[in-house]
């Protein structure tokens, strides 16, 4: 996935992925890859700093737990502020894409 598209939407993808429950960093990349039918590939170099930033901003919260294969892993989940942020971002995304599509159809 090209960097410039990712820049604005990475937070959205992460929040959406984490919305049902908690997941570790590797799981998030897999999840996004699968859900987008191998279209969106998140780089580790972008993902981990983003997770840190969103944690510092209070959108997600992290805890250390045992993973499926019994290794210690850091699981993130969405906070209440994160849920609110997600709803707003999704809403804005829909509006913007709808606007751009209608413009493209018209032109």
């Amino acid at each position: 996935m090209p960097r410039e598209t990712l820049q604005g939407t990475l937070d959205l993808l992460i929040l959406k992925t984490l919305a049902p429950g908690s997941e570790h960093g590797y799981g998030i990349t897999c999840c996004i890859l699968n859900a987008s039918q191998n279209q969106l590939r998140v780089e580790e170099g972008s993902l981990y700093p983003a997770l840190r930033r969103m944690e510092a901003d209070g959108l997600i919260k992290a805890e250390w737990r045992a993973s499926e294969n019994n290794r210690r892993a850091r699981y993130d989940h969405v906070t209440r502020a994160g849920k609110k942020h997600l709803a707003e971002t999704v809403e804005r995304w829909r509006r913007n894409t709808a606007a751009v599509s209608s413009f493209l159809d018209f032109a």
Binding site: G45, R52, R53
Partner: peptide, 25 residues
């Protein structure tokens, strides 16, 4: 380290990632 163990691949510039994580934290 956990991430690497899952992918069995290379992560790229780990130092740079860590730097950026640190900046964000």
């Amino acid at each position: 380290e956990f991430h690497r163990s899952q992918t069995s691949g290379s992560l790229g510039n780990v130092t740079l990632i860590r730097d950026r994580m640190r900046d964000a934290s």
